[in-house]
Design a protein around this nucleic acid. Structure first.
Lengths: 218, 218
DNA sequence: AATAACATACATACTGGTTGGTATGTTAAG
DNA sequence: CTTAACATACCAACCAGTATGTATGTTATT
């Protein structure tokens, strides 16, 4: 009948949902307890404080999101550009998700200036995300599917920035149409990262002009 | 000795600072009062509720930010691309600003899913920002300084998204270096919006390939 | 010009409700 | 029988908001 691991996990899940809805500071412990039918004694048996619960939510739930939605799909498979386009297009347009935005960004936005412990944990996630993207791009470069003139880390950061930026605009508009426009523009930009066909394997590529590259129309 | 307008303005300013620091929900009325040496009676004489104070902060302070930092510099002056590059490069890299992020985004991020009244006011600001950018780009198009194949509204949205996205990444990293990389990449992208030199005035431009355009290396 | 009547602009003290957190008691499992 | 895993009752702090009082400024009347 007793199942401490399951109790803990339910607290994390309900905590994540409540934090996603209200932000960490305004998240109510009592609301989490009501959602789980767990009592306060049980919660404080598993977590020392609200802050510790928050840290656990970040480490054990939020950290999985870019792993599951971005890095895992990127690992297996060939062309990273195609994979990235698929990932971006697969982003949920459900009203509740558009409205809620990205949990990782929400927490970073709220907590990074306020709590260094939160910030470091979130930074680790961002870093892993960026590194995973960069690694995939590098692989594409050696495969000859990704332009060799771009810097993988910076391109990864650029993609993350525009992705999160559009998520925010759509969140404020609360309109999936805004997000769809964002997807279109991100995908257009992603296509501009493809290596030109002439040089699938090795050799020097012909650039159109010094250091410049093709970009999809907006 | 009495100066109701000044009292109100001081409450707005202190309220803005407190909301910028802690978010709206966690902003404390008492903290605002302590910062202004205004009493609760005075505050609630000028504002019906914390929510109304928040609305006034958005309308009277936050709304000015894109106006002052983006639209005004864009109005007077010639080449909008040059102006935009200047604006982006002029963004503060002071640690406190990098740490705090963009007030408009902070509020949108926190309040848009929670309070429709907030959301609509913020949406108005975003819309004015986007429209101002689009208008400047259109002017550049008729001047011949901006590529004619791009859609001004979407390009404006793209710029806002990547700008805000980088602000967020820098905020989480709490590192001006991250923001400087962002500026570099945004500026590089902005340069790709310039019309090719061959066709400063009228006439058809030679595109490099169907609907594609030049983009700066990252 | 004097002053009564009124309105504006505050100040102070307080309230009910909610918060995260704790102290102590109970029960199930090994 | 021990202790891990809860449950219950409670607390002090803080919260936005209010009730009430007061000092200052304005306007109308004589």
């Amino acid at each position: 009948m007793r199942d401490p691991e399951r109790t803990r996990e339910r607290l994390l899940q309900a905590g994540f949902r409540e934090v996603y809805r209200s932000g960490f500071q305004s998240a109510s412990i009592d609301t989490i307890l009501a959602a789980t039918n767990v009592t306060k004694g049980a919660l404080y048996y598993h977590f020392d404080s609200k802050e510790h619960l928050g840290h656990a939510i970040v480490e054990e739930i939020v950290a999985k999101l870019p792993q599951d939605n971005w890095l895992r799909p990127l690992e297996r498979g060939k062309n990273p550009i195609d994979a990235l386009i698929g990932i971006v297009q697969a982003t949920s347009v459900r009203p509740e998700d558009v409205k809620g935005g990205c949990p990782l960004v929400n927490l970073a936005q709220e907590m990074s200036p306020l709590d260094e412990q939160f910030r470091k944990r979130l930074e680790t996630i961002f870093h892993a995300w960026q590194e995973g993207l960069a690694t995939a791009l590098r692989r594409g470069q050696s495969q000859g599917t990704v332009r060799r003139d771009l810097v993988p880390e910076e391109t990864a950061g650029f993609l993350m920035a525009m992705y999160e930026g559009y998520v925010l605009l759509a969140k404020n508009a609360q309109d999936a149409k805004v997000w769809n426009v964002g997807i279109r523009n991100i995908v257009g930009w992603l296509r501009s990262l493809r290596a030109p066909r002439q040089s699938r394997r090795g050799g020097r590529r012909r650039l159109m002009s010094k250091g410049r590259v093709v970009k999809q129309r907006q």
